[in-house]
């Protein structure tokens, strides 16, 4: 029960009291036609009113009113307390729910950002790995080609040098072993093969 209701009850009590008094007064002043009777009645009414509404009756009314007021106040206080408790509990529940939701949302966002960062890192690592793999393949291929070319170069140098070495060795080995007289036939064969050129040169020179 709130203060408005309390005021309403007090107002109704006051209205009842006022109507009672008015009724009493009206009854007292209602026999105006017979003044004497009325006057007697009035004075009697007034005495009765005084007789009814004496100090004890007023005190009793005050006590009852006080008790009723206290009762009303107590009930309203209790209602107010209950309402406050209910409101407080509802507020606590509301705050709890709101905070929980907020925290859940924030944690979800944090988890999502962590997952995104993780995914980005994984993608970056994968890309780097792919690039490294491609580079490794390219370098392997280049290395294989270079090795092949180098092998060919070495082989060519070896073959060229080996030919010169063999020539030099044979010349050195047999050069001074062949008697000049044994070479005569070989020399004459060469001279015979180039005879015409020699003769022509001598004729031209002459």
């Amino acid at each position: 029960m709130n203060i408005g209701e309390l005021l309403l009850i007090l107002g109704s009590l006051a209205a009842a009291t006022a109507s009672f008094i008015w009724m009493a007064l009206r009854v007292g002043s209602g026999g105006g036609k017979a003044k004497t009777k009325t006057g007697d009645l009035t004075s009697q009414a007034e005495e009765d009113v005084e007789h009814i509404f004496n100090n004890e009756f007023r005190e009793e009314l005050r006590n009852r009113g006080r008790l009723h007021f206290e009762k009303i106040i107590g009930e309203n206080a209790m209602f107010l307390q209950q309402d406050l408790r209910l409101t407080t509990s509802q507020l606590n529940e509301y705050m709890k729910a709101e905070i929980t939701n907020k925290l859940r949302e924030e944690f979800a966002k944090y988890e999502e950002s962590i997952a995104d960062a993780k995914q980005l890192a994984i993608e970056s690592i994968n890309k780097t790995q792919q690039a490294l793999e491609q580079q490794r393949q390219v370098m392997s291929q280049q290395l294989a080609e270079e090795l092949t070319k180098e092998k060919e170069r070495v082989l060519q140098r070896f073959e060229a040098n080996m030919a010169d070495i063999v020539n030099h060795y044979v010349l050195a080995a047999i050069g001074d072993q062949i008697d000049l007289n044994d070479q005569l036939e070989y020399i004459l064969a060469d001279l015979e093969a180039n005879k015409q050129a020699i003769i022509q040169d001598i004729k031209d020179g002459a």
Binding site: G175, I178, D190, N194, A197, D201, I202, G205
Partner: peptide
């Protein structure tokens, strides 16, 4: 001596390496 064996022939205007 470096020719090993055979000979070289030089005429008025030509050179033959045998």
């Amino acid at each position: 001596p470096s020719i090993g064996a055979g000979c070289t022939l030089r005429t008025a205007s030509k050179y033959f390496d045998f």
